[in-house]
Amino acid sequence: MIGRALLWLVLTFGVATPLALVAAIALGEAAEGIPPVRFPWNGGAATDSLVLIATDPFYVGALLSSLEVAALTAAACVALAFPMALGIVRARPGPRIWLLAAVMLPFWTGFLPRMGAWIGLFRDSGWINGVLVEFGLPAQQMLYTDAAMLVGMVHAYLPFAVLPLFGVLLRLDPRLEEAAADLGAGPVARLVTVVLPQAAPGIAAAFLLVFIPAAGEYVIPELLGPPSATLVGRVVVQEFFQNRDWPVAAALSLGLLVVLLPPLWLYQRLGTQG
């Protein structure tokens, strides 16, 4: 109940007002001045920006590749987080709290230094290449690749996937696995027929908790990704600061929101079911 009330409070004051402003900008016209936009109520009403981002291959492509990167990130996070969460749940209560703390540890350290660390590892004269060269292997171009970007994304979002999986696996009745074993199920069969189906809501929650924020990620592609990775977050920043085309930037933000609504709705449904 309190959770729901708090949610509405945040929705009203933290989401609805800024969203209305973004919508107003998206429906306006780019113009010289401060701010560089003519609002609809000042005679600048236009749907050009919305049409543009929905039809222009560049903007549609940015939305699609954002979804693709977010989906890859979320899938990789869930794949890594599931065995991690299972291991933490199966640890004895003493070590368990420390393992969980280790998962949370990145939240306590700065985000930019951690990205800086990845740059230090990946760059041409970085640590990984140092080791490769030491063993007589050719140095690799790693920084500013899709792979480096994905590694950074997975690193940043992994804890968001571990926590819901930890929650759902912790609530799993160990007697159910024993019953399955008693009826002849080996370790793999127990995982597939008992643990995974029961953890399904947690898996979906973990995926969406990563997928939704990852779709709008700006900093990690900027720091680790290739220039060709024109994801929505980067395009929004370009339009906003470099092209000073606020309506297109706002329309792209709205476009991202619209494509994220179905998964959000799905997440909401899973939440009410669980």
């Binding site: 009745d173 024993e178 019953a179």
Partner: peptide, 11 residues
């Protein structure tokens, strides 16, 4: 085979 106290039926 064993019948568990809480039955341990697969929900």
């Amino acid at each position: 085979h064993m019948m568990f106290q809480s039955y341990a039926l697969f929900p």
